[in-house]
Design a protein around this nucleic acid. Structure first.
Length: 419
RNA sequence: GCCCCCAUCGACUAGCGGCCUAGGUCACCACCCUUUCAAGGUGGCUGCACGGGUUCGAAUCCCGUUGGGGGUACCA
C-alpha cells in the first residue's frame, strides 16, 4: 500500500513542541512505509506574517531532521476547489444556502464513526451534529471543509493528528462522504501536557523548537525524546537513532493517554547524546552553537576547552556558565576563599614545569600534604578563585587551559580579597 | 448542560486473561569511584484511581463513580 500523510501546522510564528511530536509521528510513519509526507500550512489568510511563519516552521523542521516531500502547500490554495465542490454539493442537494453561507446537511439519525488507528472505534450520535457551514457568506471555506477537501485532493491516506481533532472528525467524514471521496485512516495521538497536567505553555519552559535549539539541545536527542512521548517500541528500548525510530515506528504502538513533557529526562538524554559524540564532532557542534548564539569567544580556545566540558554538561547552553572563566574575568564569592591556601597555592604553582594537567595535579597533591589538609578544603577555594564558581571542568584541566599567568594572578587576587 | 476521549511508580512507559508477589528508563535516596559539581558503577524507594460485575483466574474484558482533557463557531 502506498502511504501519504501530511503535517498541517497553523502559521502561528513558531512550531510548538507538542505539535512537532505529532508531525514526527507522521514523518516516522511515512518513512516506515516508504511513503510520502507533505507539509501543508493551514492558513486562512496570506500576508507577510504568514510567509515569515512558514519560513520559521520549515527551518525548525529541517533542523530537527524532519523532511517533507515536494513544495510546501497552503490551505488557501485549495479555496477555489472548495467553492466548486460546495456548489456541486448544493446542486446535488447535499448542501444548501443559508443567509449567503453554504451549509452541509448532517445525517438525521444513526451515528458517524470510524476505526481510529490509535484509539479504536469512535462514534458520534448524528443528532449531536448540526448542519455545518462549509462556505462563509464571503465565499471563504471553513477549516472543517477545506481540510478534508485538501486531504482528498492531495490523496492523503492517513490523517495522523492531535487528539483535539477528534470531534472534528465526524464533520470531516460527512464532508468526505458527501464528496464521494474515500475516507483516510484516522489516527489521533494524545496531546502533550506540561508538568501540571495543563497544556504545555511558556511557563513550563521552552515550548518552541527554536527555544530548545537555543538552549543547546541537539536535534537527534530531541527527536529521540519526542518520539517516546506517547509511543514506545517495547518496554526496554529508549535510545534510538532516527533510522531506528523510523524502522520501528507503528501506529499500533502509539498510546492513547496524554504524555507529560519531562524536561529532566530530556536533559539526561541530551547529555547522553552529547557525550556520545567523538571529540571532533563535539567541538564542531559546540562551536556552531556558540556562533549561532552570537558568541565572539575565540574559536580555537573553545575547541581546546571542549573535551573538558563534554563529559560535564547536558546542554550546550551551559557552556558559558561552565567555562566562561576561560574567556572573561571572574567575580568569585569572597566568603568561599581562603587567603592562606590561595597564597600557598600560588607559590606552589609558580614553579610548576611544564604547565600541564598532570604536573599541576602532582603539585596540588603535594600542597595538600604540606598543608596537611583534605583535597576538598584545598581545592574549593582554588577553584572558586580561579573559575569564579564551585562548579567547573576538572580543576587540573581548568588551570592548564587558563594558563599559568592568569591562574597565578587570580590566586593572588583571591588571596587579597579573602582578607 | 450535552457529546467525545483518557486513567499502571513523582514522570515516560511495558503489559493486549494465567509468564506480574507488575518489567525498563528519567527523577529521587544510599553506597562506590573521586578533585567540588557532574559523569560512571552498584543497590533501593515508590504504581495497576475507586466500586461493582464476567471468569477457575483481571492491571488486562464489561458497567458505574471519581478525576483529567477535548469539543459544542460563518476559529484553526
Amino acid at each position: 500500500m502506498s502511504v501519504r500523510v501530511r503535517m498541517a501546522p497553523s502559521p502561528t510564528g513558531f512550531l510548538h513542541i507538542g505539535g512537532v511530536r505529532t508531525f514526527l509521528f507522521n514523518w516516522l510513519f511515512a518513512r516506515s512505509y516508504s511513503g510520502e509526507c507533505l507539509l501543508r500550512i493551514e492558513n486562512t489568510d496570506t500576508g507577510r506574517e504568514v510567509a515569515e511563519s512558514v519560513e520559521q516552521i520549515e527551518r525548525s523542521l529541517r533542523w530537527l531532521g524532519i523532511e517533507w516531500d515536494g513544495e510546501t502547500r497552503f490551505q488557501l490554495d485549495g479555496a477555489e476547489r472548495c467553492r466548486t465542490e460546495a456548489a456541486r454539493l448544493v446542486a446535488e442537494g447535499r448542501a444548501y444556502e443559508d443567509d449567503g453561507a453554504i451549509r452541509i446537511r448532517m445525517p438525521e439519525e444513526g451515528v458517524v464513526g470510524w476505526d481510529d488507528a490509535v484509539k479504536g472505534r469512535i462514534e458520534f450520535p448524528a443528532d449531536q451534529l448540526e448542519d455545518m457551514v462549509i462556505l462563509r457568506s464571503d465565499g471563504r471555506p471553513v477549516y472543517n471543509f477545506a481540510s478534508p477537501v485538501d486531504d482528498w485532493v492531495d490523496g492523503i491516506t492517513h490523517v495522523i493528528r492531535g487528539d483535539d481533532h477528534v470531534s472534528n472528525t465526524p464533520k470531516q467524514i460527512v464532508v468526505l462522504r458527501a464528496l464521494g471521496a474515500d475516507l483516510p485512516v484516522y489516527a489521533h495521538a494524545p496531546n502533550v501536557f506540561g508538568e501540571d497536567g495543563k497544556k504545555l505553555s511558556k511557563r513550563h519552559g521552552a515550548v518552541s523548537v527554536g527555544e530548545f535549539r537555543e538552549a543547546g539541545y541537539i536535534a537527534p536527542a530531541l527527536m529521540n525524546f519526542l518520539a517516546l512521548l506517547g509511543w514506545a517500541p517495547d518496554g526496554e528500548t529508549t535510545i534510538m537513532s532516527r533510522d531506528e525510530l523510523a524502522e520501528r515506528f507503528t501506529l499500533e504502538k502509539v498510546g492513547s493517554s496524554p504524555a507529560t513533557f519531562d524536561y529532566a529526562k530530556l536533559d539526561w538524554m541530551n547529555g547522553l547524546y552529547l557525550r556520545a559524540l567523538d571529540a571532533g564532532a563535539y567541538a564542531d557542534t559546540l562551536v556552531t552553537f556558540l556562533r549561532e548564539q552570537g558568541s565572539t569567544w575565540n574559536e580555537a580556545r573553545v575547541r581546546e576547552a571542549a573535551p573538558a566540558v563534554q563529559e560535564k554538561i547536558g546542554r550546550l547552553g551551559e557552556f558559558a556558565g561552565f567555562a566562561g572563566f576561560l574567556f572573561e574575568d571572574v567575580d568569585p564569592d569572597l566568603t568561599l576563599l581562603d587567603g592562606g591556601v590561595l597564597t600557598e597555592a600560588a607559590s606552589q604553582l609558580a614553579t610548576v614545569e611544564p604547565w600541564d594537567a598532570a604536573t599541576i595535579e602532582r603539585a596540588l597533591k603535594a600542597l595538600c600534604e604540606r598543608l596537611e589538609a583534605k583535597p576538598k578544603t584545598v581545592y574549593l577555594p582554588i577553584r572558586v578563585a580561579v573559575t569564579g564558581s564551585r562548579i567547573s571542568p576538572g580543576l587540573y584541566e581548568s588551570l592548564e587551559l587558563l594558563g599559568r599567568d592568569v591562574t597565578l594572578a587570580r590566586l593572588r587576587q583571591g588571596a587579597d580579597g579573602a582578607a
